[in-house]
């Protein structure tokens, strides 16, 4: 019996998974176990499935995903901290036939960029906002974020977030759901295959909304930050389920079909 070679195995009929061509071959700069990689992948898979790579302009934030343009094989602009929705507003208004999305973390979107986020949502800009919420500033080394949970420890809340002194976490997603300009507001996660499928469906819906000129779609992805939370990836996901999800419940918040 002839020996089975790798080439035999790599036949197209045996292929059950292939990395989308819309991700580059550059190794991700994210920590092992971080949700960003999965989130990147499903956004790019949606663009590939909709066949809109040549019509899409992405906006990268400041934060862990500042280098998103290194991994996403599409035209991208890197924004100043918090300003991605302002860039996206102009890009879409000047290029109404293009697909435009921002990819932002919680510090970027819910602290320094609060004004840009709220006003882009309120104007109902026909864009997609992908919001990765891990409750901490990852890139700068684990400082308190606007979304850090009450009592949660970070390098700038070393004894836990005291809401009387440091304020309460900001539920940006619930906030923008109040605004008439948002058409679709949802909160998802990417820690299990089932959740990945749901999130991908949500992102697909968001881009389909844009295709139909319906208005602003806002997809929050509650994610883990095992390095910032000082946990291993498994612990971080468990902690996220036990602590983050009760405060940031998953599911659609607003669906205007």
């Amino acid at each position: 019996m002839a020996e089975i070679t790798k080439e035999d195995i790599r036949k197209p009929e045996n292929l059950i998974y292939k990395k989308t061509d819309l991700l580059t071959d550059k190794p991700l700069s994210y920590c092992p176990g971080c949700g960003h990689g999965t989130a990147h992948r499903i956004v790019m898979e949606v663009l590939e499935e909709m066949d809109i790579q040549d019509k899409t302009i992405g906006i990268a934030p400041v934060g862990c995903s500042v280098l998103a343009y290194e991994f996403m094989n599409i035209d991208m602009q890197q924004a100043a901290h918090g300003r991605a929705p302002a860039l996206a507003t102009a890009v879409k208004r000047l290029n109404p036939d293009k697909f435009v999305f921002t990819y932002q973390g919680d510090g970027d979107l819910a602290a320094i960029g609060t004004a840009e986020t709220i006003h882009a949502c309120n104007r109902g800009e026909n864009i997609v906002i992908i919001f990765i919420n891990n409750g901490i500033y990852g890139m700068t080394g684990g400082q308190m974020a606007p979304t850090t949970l009450p009592g949660m420890k970070s390098s700038t809340s070393p004894y836990g977030r005291d809401v009387h002194m440091m304020g309460n976490p900001l539920k940006m997603t619930e906030l923008v759901a109040q605004l008439p300009g948002t058409i679709y507001v949802t909160r998802q996660a990417v820690h299990t295959p089932a959740n990945v499928r749901k999130t991908k469906k949500a992102i697909r819906k968001a881009f389909e909304n844009q295709k139909l000129n319906k208005g602003l779609s806002f997809v929050e992805i509650v994610s883990n930050c095992n390095s910032g939370w000082k946990m291993n990836p498994v612990q971080a996901n468990e902690w996220m389920v036990e602590n983050m999800f009760p405060f940031y419940p998953l599911g659609d918040i607003k669906v205007n079909d």
Binding site: I57, I59, Q77, A79, A80, R83, A86, L87, A88, T89, A90, V91, R93, L94, N95, A115, E116, I118, H119
Partner: peptide
């Protein structure tokens, strides 16, 4: 031509960044 009143000067200049990055005269 698009004319937009932004929520702040900060947003306005970043809109300019976004438009200019698309090769537009902004």
């Amino acid at each position: 031509m698009v004319v937009l009143q932004a929520e702040s000067e900060v947003a306005a200049i970043n809109m300019v960044y976004g438009g200019a990055a698309c090769g537009k005269r902004v």
